[in-house]
């Protein structure tokens, strides 16, 4: 028995990345199964993220470490799979399939909504962060960026050298946004006139979290999904571009 345990430990320490991929696959399979069960198919990825954050919480409590699941020997591969190198590599690839003519078609309302959307979420996040005691410009900008999306938060945090605690907060803010979007969109669609392609594009540009927008629109009117997703695709890129640069500089002027 001891020998078998030893071999299993060897497997996890020799192939950490493969182990992490397998573990994430299991988390996602469970999340999508659960999402289907509660009739919210598109919430699968949001649920998987919440489960992962919960596991990181449990791991942090038991190991006392600061790197979540990756502090558990068996799951050290999470640090490779979820590290900034592969994350940025994968994010860049999502720009593939964006058509220049669609970029032009979204036109003025799309561009206006993107700029206002990123700036609005960023500064709401910054103001709330400062109001609750995160007075340091790096912390406030990272939390503000997380309020933009859960990708922009860690990208900004890494660029500015924020602590893992603040990066985790920024991801949590982005996840809250994504989940709230999926739940609230179908409820208030009528009152915000979300019933035609133009407002769907504006909506995608203002909210920006691709999973939230796709999920929320699918629950409202599936015909609107591509229009919202079209502008939402640019949101994370725009946020990654301006939050750690212009955004941070503006925050730094006030703090």
């Amino acid at each position: 028995m001891y020998m078998i345990g030893e071999i299993i430990t060897t497997l996890f320490s020799k192939f950490p990345l493969v182990g992490a991929i397998g573990a994430v696959a299991i988390i996602m399979a469970f999340s999508y199964w659960f999402a289907n069960l509660i009739g919210q198919k598109r919430m699968g990825s949001a649920i998987a993220i919440v489960i992962s954050l919960a596991l990181a919480f449990v791991a942090g409590k038991t190991t006392g470490g600061a790197k979540g699941i990756s502090d558990v020997t068996y799951f050290s591969g999470f640090a490779l799979l979820g590290g900034s190198m592969l994350r940025d590599y994968a994010i860049v690839s999502t720009a593939f399939g964006v058509k220049l003519e669609n970029l032009k078609k979204a036109g003025l309302p799309g561009v206006v909504s993107l700029l206002i959307g990123v700036a609005f979420s960023f500064f709401v996040g910054v103001i709330i962060a400062v109001a609750l005691g995160y007075n340091n410009a790096v912390d406030a900008a990272t939390i503000g960026a997380g309020t933009v999306t859960f990708i922009v938060g860690p990208v900004t945090g890494t660029a500015l050298g924020a602590s893992s605690e603040v990066v985790a907060l920024s991801i949590a803010a982005g996840v809250v946004k994504s989940v709230v979007t999926m739940i609230i969109t179908p409820l208030i669609a009528k009152s915000i006139k979300l019933d035609n392609p133009t407002t769907a594009m504006v909506y995608g540009g203002l909210i920006g979290t691709t999973s939230g927008v796709a999920g929320g629109l699918a629950a409202t009117d599936s015909k609107l999904v591509p229009y919202g997703a079209m502008t939402a695709t640019f949101y994370t890129g725009l946020g990654s571009l301006i939050c750690p640069s212009i955004g941070y500089m503006i925050v730094k002027m006030f703090l």
Binding site: A48, L53, F57, G68, S70, F75, S164, V167, A168
Partner: peptide
């Protein structure tokens, strides 16, 4: 998305 899930798992929650 799987990478983002892994990323969520290594944060100081």
């Amino acid at each position: 998305i799987p990478i983002v899930v892994a990323m969520a798992g290594i944060q100081n929650v």
